[in-house]
Nucleic acid binder design. Structure first.
Lengths: 147, 147
DNA sequence: AGCAATTGAATAGCATGCTATTCAAAATGG
DNA sequence: CCATTTTGAATAGCATGCTATTCAATTGCT
């Protein structure tokens, strides 16, 4: 009957993710950025001109979620959309100069958050933590298909 | 300049938490429960009659978030509120029989999700994973006060 | 007692996420 | 070449979370 929250991976994962998001949010808000926008910019800084579909695949969120995030980013002058040359259904997403210029400050803020989070861990522990999270992510993705 | 998402603790934490939530959601939706409601029930199954303030402390969410969650739970017939006997500002939250009866099924569903997530980890790895998350949570809480 | 500061909740407003639905454009197969 | 299916996006509707604000009840202090 007892279900101890502080021993539940799911409960801890939720709490941890909220703390990460909050910490990042306070650090990038001055740039005019929100966390999901930053995550999207990460993909576009690497490869400008991606379609919405490609962003969905790379960032692993639902299509509707990405559509909403992109709408806010367009509203905020971070991206522009152009119809795909070969497929009128698709659109290519391009960064504005403003978004391109944010890269240094924004990634530095995100690195800072990660550094704070891992401050108490040794380099080995930090590495293992990343590996464990990656394996748990894989298990959750696999587990939901089967059952 | 490169910032690798799949090596970023914050990015992985976000993805992992979304997968946990989604997995839990599909398993408790048949009971008429949503994840945040389940989390709130966990606290109330342990101690019925808590005030909103006490729930906020135990679950570590903002007061406004809890107020909204409780409003939905009241709407769904999971809780009832009674004005606190000694403080007319506060209200005590009580479970309905329906919510009390859900305990077994709901905690079993949550345990199943945790089991699926940790399936690929040895017991030692699973334990360490919980410890690492707890330490990271502590670091994030501490880090944001200072800086 | 009486006024100021504190405190428990509710509300407003917004960002993320998800599922389900819808629509138009493309691809496929007869 | 046309009808069916598939596919890229947008939209509707909802749950969580957060910050900021507001309001009433309580506490504290004088």
């Amino acid at each position: 009957m007892s279900f101890d929250k502080s021993q539940s991976a799911g409960f801890l994962a939720n709490q941890m993710a909220r703390l990460f998001a909050r910490s990042l949010q306070t650090r990038i808000a001055p740039l005019g950025l929100a966390p999901a926008q930053f995550m999207t910019l990460l993909a576009l800084w690497e490869a400008d001109g991606l379609t919405q579909k490609q962003l969905v695949e790379r960032l692993d969120v639902e299509q509707a979620t990405m559509a909403n995030t992109l709408a806010r980013m367009e509203r905020d002058g971070l991206i522009v959309r152009r119809t795909h040359a070969a497929d009128a259904r698709a659109q290519c997403i391009y960064l504005t100069p403003r978004a391109i210029g944010m890269r240094g400050d924004a990634t530095q803020a995100a690195s800072m958050v990660n550094a704070i989070a891992m401050k108490g861990l040794s380099p080995q522990e930090a590495q293992q933590f990343l590996k464990l999270m990656t394996r748990v992510i894989g298990a959750l993705k696999a587990g939901d298909d089967e059952d």
